[in-house]
Design a protein around this nucleic acid. Structure first.
Lengths: 229, 229
DNA sequence: ATTACTTAGTGTAAAAATTACACACTATAT
DNA sequence: ATATAGTGTGTAATTTTTACACTAAGTAAT
């Protein structure tokens, strides 16, 4: 984000709310700033849009630099441009959210000159954020709440193969409320975008659940029809 | 829009899709450009964001300069920033839509140095647009299609007092499909945000319909509950 | 005053979707 | 074998959505 302050009239940046799900909690990736303003505060990762980058490319780059991940689902959702949102000058920022399956292989590796460190923090217990980043985060959460009701974005937070209980768990965390198990299954299956696999969950000390996969083909065919939770 | 091209690395502008309803058709306000690039083409009105303006303020100013109207409902909906979207340099633009009741008092008065003239053109018959403005418009229409299903924005296109048939007409034009009269009335009334007036339509050569008004108070009370069409 | 015309305004039955709700089954661990 | 923890399933009641057509009210013309 707003770490660099060239003497231009205005700066255009992108800030990202990276939502991660580790099987248990919904988290976002925050960086601890190493520079003024807001030194030592937690902030959303962001950066200035490069001269030859599209907006989506820029967002993907920012995410890559911070996590080493590519091919992550990201979407812009709101531009913040209050003249006073940055204490040192005019910075208009476009917010993106990203959805990431955590807890496997890849570690977050914060290699950034303006960040001390980066951490996945549960959204249920966030620190105070720098700039207007609380507002940006709030709007991002709002956005995915609406999105998850109509678009198949929940799968982006899960491994390729998942159980229906895990899927329900994602919905519950994002929507912030409990859902009925039987009704949830009935509905989600009725959309016809899940493929039931001949495979069971492994490594659990109880009856293993059936694994499912999101079937992009079927979804593409449905396109136009509205999914609705 | 992008008429001025200072020698900056990047320019940040706002483009507006002004939807107007005159009781019959849904129209948008387009300007005919007087300068290269795209001289003589039709384009969405837009301008560069001023140094001390918020984004919403800037959008409101652009609308005011073109129409003389203030206090119009506007909302940002998408940022377009392809590096090649403007032939002469990097211009990132944020798109707003506005909803305007046409056909009364106020005339559109295009006083702009870069426009020959401005015209309300029916969305059913639009000319080719400059830059990527077709894409911007398409996305704007998409946006209000979704919005009108969940938020009470239809009223912005109507006079303060309107008939249910007029309201239905707005929905039909935006959604691009016919709706059933009885079901429409049942539903819209069931939301409980309309106030039936003791007043009838005037100046029609047939039975006058009852007038209604959008009741902001009632709507505010419902806030949180979702309207759904 | 009669008539023709145009839109307003209304109800119901069938179908579909949503909700609320509880227990037996399966696998593992001890 | 037993305890434990989560899987997986059905139904009835309610609500919502859909499809559908005629009478009433007012205006205009004769």
């Amino acid at each position: 984000m707003e770490q660099i302050l060239p003497h231009l009239d205005s700066v255009f940046s992108i800030d990202c709310v990276l939502f991660g799900f580790d099987g248990k909690e919904l988290k976002i990736l925050l960086i601890e700033r190493n520079e003024e303003p807001f030194k030592d505060w937690w902030a959303l990762p962001g950066n200035i849009v490069g001269a030859d980058e599209s907006l989506d490319q820029s967002a993907a780059r920012i995410l890559y630099e911070l996590t080493g991940l590519r091919g992550i689902f990201m979407e812009q959702y709101y531009a913040f441009g209050d003249p006073n949102r940055h204490p040192q000058g005019r910075v208009i920022t476009l917010a993106y959210y990203a959805l990431i399956r955590l807890g496997g292989d890849k570690e977050v590796r914060p290699i950034s000159n303006y960040a001390k460190r980066a951490n996945w923090l549960p959204i249920t217990d966030l620190p105070k954020l720098a700039f207007d980043h609380q507002k940006i985060y709030d709007k991002g959460l709002e956005k995915i709440k609406r999105r998850i009701k109509h678009q198949p974005i929940a799968f982006e937070l899960l491994p390729e193969k998942f159980t229906l209980t895990q899927l329900q768990h994602v919905y519950e965390l994002v929507l912030g409320k409990k859902l009925d198990k039987r009704n949830f299954r009935k509905k989600i299956v009725s959309f016809g975008v899940l493929k039931e696999l001949d495979e069971k969950q492994k490594g659990v000390s109880y009856r293993a659940a059936t694994l499912y996969r999101f079937d992009k083909r079927k979804y593409a065919k449905l396109f136009g029809k509205e999914i609705s939770f």
